[in-house]
């Protein structure tokens, strides 16, 4: 329980990228991903240029390549899906290494792989240079409804509490000789889930009571009013601006 999940992705540091206000980084990442997705898949060199851009950001943020690549593994299910496409897609076929593969499927797979990998890499970079907390305040500053931000921040705060509760229930079950083996025991697990739901619901009521007792009226007070300077915006904009140039060239060439 010691290390909260907030630390899994975040890699603390003092690089210029870490120091940028979170809302600048979120906007820059979002802009970058949109541009990557908008680039025509035939402009293969453009994706290489995007990868170089991300590499430059990672270098500025002093994120080691190994760290980044390990976090990229989350993409594997999509990769599997992409690898299937050349085999199942319809249309014109072309022989590759003795296999007959669909041309449109190959393009589709390339499209999913290239854009997906770049998108995931950009998100991993954002997550590893920005604390979860800061991401939320950034989203709030960018105009995400405060209710959604509140829900997300409660998830961060109570994730560990609920997990600990689940673990205690599991310890209590096993201490009385219960071991989940096969379908016959699913009923017990389902009742555990139900009990956990009720407990969490009741905790929610008690938390709300405590909030109301301290003057909660429906909105969270914004504490850290960190406005971004023009220079910080310009710095953050370097990534999407260069990406825009690449994207435009991708259409032109």
């Amino acid at each position: 329980m010691g290390a909260g999940h907030s630390h899994l992705l975040h890699r603390p540091g003092h690089s210029p990228v870490h120091a940028l206000p979170p809302h600048c980084k979120i906007a820059a990442t979002f802009g970058f991903v949109v541009l990557v997705v908008a680039t025509p898949r035939e402009a293969m060199w453009a994706f290489g240029a995007y990868a170089v851009l991300l590499g430059a950001v990672a270098a500025t943020a002093r994120i080691p390549a190994g760290f980044l690549l390990k976090r990229l593994l989350i993409e594997i299910p999509f990769v599997a899906f992409a690898l299937l496409m050349p085999f199942v897609a319809e249309g014109e076929r072309t022989p590759v290494l003795g296999l007959s593969l669909s041309v449109s499927g190959l393009w589709g797979a390339w499209n999913v792989l290239a854009k997906g990998t770049l998108g995931v890499a950009a998100s991993v970079l954002l997550a590893s240079t920005t604390e979860l907390r800061a991401l939320l305040t950034g989203l709030q500053r960018l105009g995400l409804p405060s209710l959604l931000v509140q829900i997300a921040s409660f998830m961060i705060r109570y994730g560990d509490v609920v997990t600990a509760e689940l673990r205690r229930m599991s310890v209590a079950r096993r201490s009385r000789g219960f071991e989940a083996r096969g379908v016959r025991h699913w009923g017990v697990l389902a009742r555990t889930a139900g009990a956990l739901f009720i407990r969490s619901y009741e905790r929610g009521e008690r938390v709300h009571l405590a909030m109301v007792s301290r003057g909660y009226t429906g909105t969270m007070p914004m504490l850290d009013e960190t406005a971004a300077t023009r220079a910080q915006w310009a710095y953050a904009a370097a990534l999407p601006a260069t990406a825009l140039a690449v994207c435009v060239m991708g259409y032109a060439l």
Binding site: S153, R157, A210, M211, R214, T217
Partner: peptide, 30 residues
């Protein structure tokens, strides 16, 4: 509610913000 400060039995119910500082600031900020 500003004048009556209730400390509930389970601190996990009372402390609902992500950091100690923000939690202590919650009441006065509200």
């Amino acid at each position: 509610r500003r004048r009556v400060g209730i400390v509930f039995q389970d601190p996990d119910d009372q402390l609902f913000m992500p950091t100690v500082r923000e939690d202590v600031a919650f009441g006065p900020a509200a």
